[in-house]
Amino acid sequence: MQSAKQFTSIFGGVLVLFLVAPLIIRDTQFQHLMIMLLLFTTLSQAWNLIGGFAGQVSLGHAMFFGIGAYAAMAPLNQWGLTPWIGMAIGGLVAMVAAVIVGYPVFRLKGHYFVISTFAVAEVVRELFSNWDWVDGPIGLDAPLVEQGWRNFMFYHTKLPYHYTLLIFFAVVMFVAFRMERSRMGYYFRAIKQRPEAAQAMGVNITLFKQYAFIISAFFTAICGSMYGLYVLHIEPSTVLSLDISIKIVLIAVLGGIGSLWGPLLGATILISLQEYSRIWLGGTGRGIDLIVLGALIVIICVYEPNGIVGLIKRFSRKKRKA
């Protein structure tokens, strides 16, 4: 586990980098890349709380992401309500959804748990696809409203999105750091390694899994809200899709499941690949990023299941020995 001093210095460096980079590099494509990087790092770190720390691999996080996106966009679209309230409602609804979903699915173990989270997310996607109030499969467009912080709409700059996401990224990183060192963090690690032994020690494993799921769902929903307000159009096939759930997991797997810096490292590779293959190759290059990513994941799984963070640790150990 990283010491507090090490974490603070790396975290400080990363924050400074993200604070300064969009001011120095004014290219909008680069700024878009940074926004997506922050968004998916935050999402993957939120997933890491349940999937990495507590070892409960959820393939249904798109459900929370979609809830957040719709909660911010629908009231803005229908009633002109400030998306900040929608975002808060989205976070709360996602937490309630996590409790309702978690109650039955945490009775399942291993593959059955994974499949059940995927199945529940698909049910939610179908529900939204058939819900007239949110225009079913067509989805919702952000209304043309006055730009500014009240409506969280900015038509000439990406910086407010960048810095707002940077705050969420910092909060999630801090929560993950604190959680890793807390009593709860110990319980998560115990549950991940040997659930029955943890139970025999008197750890209420269902309760702690629920805590992790609720916190994770909240941050995922907030990211969903941010995404909707940034791209200005949401529909079930984008914000509630299996693609989103899988991408969140792949980022963590690539970077290092259960590690603090894994999501940032994984997102840096995956999102850069995704964005630059799209920019350079356009429609013809669609899917190339996933082919490269697939190959990387295979290599990682074979040679270093702890992801890039594991590789870095291995190399630094070798260096120390040499």
């Binding site: 115990a190 390694q193 032994a197 943890a198």
Partner: peptide
């Protein structure tokens, strides 16, 4: 069934 990835002290504190 000890927790392999935790230190001995952490294992004891979980108890």
């Amino acid at each position: 069934r000890i927790f392999d990835k935790m230190t001995i002290r952490e294992n004891l504190l979980i108890g």
